[in-house]
């Protein structure tokens, strides 16, 4: 691995990526926390819009983890 700074993934960045990747599990597996009707959004009960919203946020989390741990300029 190259020692130039942009190619290195620091421990702090790895930890932050880990948190981002764990977040969707915590949200979705806490089923009772979102199994309810209100607040409604555009006619959707909370149960439905919350889970659909988190599909997008999961993509954002993974995208963030990707950017945090990317090896820029490294040979591999």
């Amino acid at each position: 691995m190259s020692d130039t700074s942009p190619a290195r993934v620091t421990a702090a960045r790895k930890a932050a990526a880990g948190v981002l990747l764990a977040a969707p599990f915590l949200v979705y597996l806490a089923v009772p926390s979102y199994a309810k009707e209100s607040p409604r959004l555009a006619g959707f009960p909370f149960f439905y819009w919350w889970q659909l919203l988190w599909v997008l946020l999961t993509a954002v989390c993974i995208g963030g983890a990707h950017l945090l741990t990317r090896r820029r300029g490294g040979a591999r």
Binding site: L21, P24, Q51, T58
Partner: peptide
Amino acid sequence: GAMGFWAVPYGAIAYPIVFL
């Protein structure tokens, strides 16, 4: 009803695993 909607959380949390 709601029980069929489990495919949505499945389709989300599968991807952190794919990423790793």
